[in-house]
């Protein structure tokens, strides 16, 4: 086998991300990583395996809205088994029971997002709602006995995704109510981050902040990271560029069938004037950005 070609700009991004992941692991006793199953957080998961030499020494948390595209869930459970991951799933059981969702026709998109994602996330992280942990023996999800609040939460947001994310820190403090004070964020310089935190608060950690959509795909190609097939055209001339809930996510017109095709497509500039999250209907309903949702604790 010949030595795999690595690109200097990807190496630089990888270096910072790994350093951040290791700082997070060294600093937070109750750490978790959010895994949306999408390309970004899967790259982040891969980076964690690199940082910790094949292990992921903290749980991965996934919020199941029950409206995710089914293939996402089977992909999640497959990698959980293959990579020996500690997989924890949370949900908003009451909103689902009471049908307070957009697909049920009872609330608008933003409220649905707030219910099924933001609320579920906030309460899963603070441990006030049940968590379900993958049992590697049975392949089922059992009630997780650990309901300690997570004090460090690693999330795969990227600065180039949309406006509010471009103002994030690598280590971003959240208060008790999980809200985000954009105007008064702590300073972050050289390789020093906010790794000290007051009791009751938690810190969001963003190892992918400097990565672009193109970097993510280039890295997926370089590292041969397995991705869910929804990102590729299966013959109908459509593919998903960003993954979310089935009712609010639409594929884009594209004939990209492989990672190489996607990289060519991104480099050609065909998509450069279309927002990456253009297929995500809730963004538009929030006035073009995710800011309202994100202040409340959305990723």
């Amino acid at each position: 086998m010949t030595t795999k070609r690595t690109f200097p700009h990807l190496k630089r991004l990888e270096n910072i991300s790994i350093h951040i992941l290791r700082e997070a692991y060294a600093s937070f006793g109750n750490l978790c990583m959010l895994w949306s199953i999408g390309k970004d957080s899967t790259v982040m998961l891969w980076l964690a395996r690199k940082a910790f030499y094949g292990h992921v020494p903290f749980p991965l948390v996934h919020i199941d809205t029950h409206y995710k595209i089914p293939e996402m869930i089977s992909y999640r459970d497959r990698l959980t088994k293959e990579w020996g991951l500690t997989m924890v799933v949370g949900e908003n059981a009451s909103a689902l029971d009471q049908k307070e969702t957009f697909p049920d026709g009872n609330v608008d998109r933003i409220t649905c997002c707030r219910n099924l994602k933001t609320q579920a996330l906030v309460h899963t992280l603070d441990g006030s709602w049940p968590r379900y942990r993958f049992n590697h023996k049975t392949g089922e999800y059992d009630l997780d006995r650990n309901n300690e609040p997570y004090t460090g939460v690693i999330a795969g947001v990227r600065a180039d995704e949309e406006g509010s994310r471009s103002k994030e820190r690598y280590f971003s403090a959240r208060n008790r109510a999980a809200t985000w004070d954009i105007a008064d964020q702590p300073p972050e310089f050289w390789s020093y981050y906010k790794t000290d935190f007051a009791p009751g608060t938690h810190v969001r950690i963003h190892p992918l902040l400097d990565w672009t959509e193109l970097n993510i795909w280039e890295y997926i190609r370089q590292e041969e990271i397995p991705t869910v097939s929804l990102y590729y055209d299966q013959g109908d001339g459509k593919r998903y560029r960003s993954l979310g809930c089935q009712p609010c996510t639409t594929p884009i017109d594209s004939t990209s069938k492989t990672v190489d095709d996607i990289i060519d497509e991104l480099q050609s500039g065909q998509l450069s004037n279309i927002a990456e999250r253009s297929g995500r209907a809730q963004d538009k309903d929030d006035g073009g950005g995710l800011e309202t949702l994100r202040r409340d604790g959305y990723m």
């Binding site: 702590p186 300073p187 972050e188 050289w190 020093y192 906010k194 000290d196 935190f197």
Partner: peptide
Amino acid sequence: RFVIIDDYEI
């Protein structure tokens, strides 16, 4: 170079 941490903040 160094940083000083006071009250949990840089």
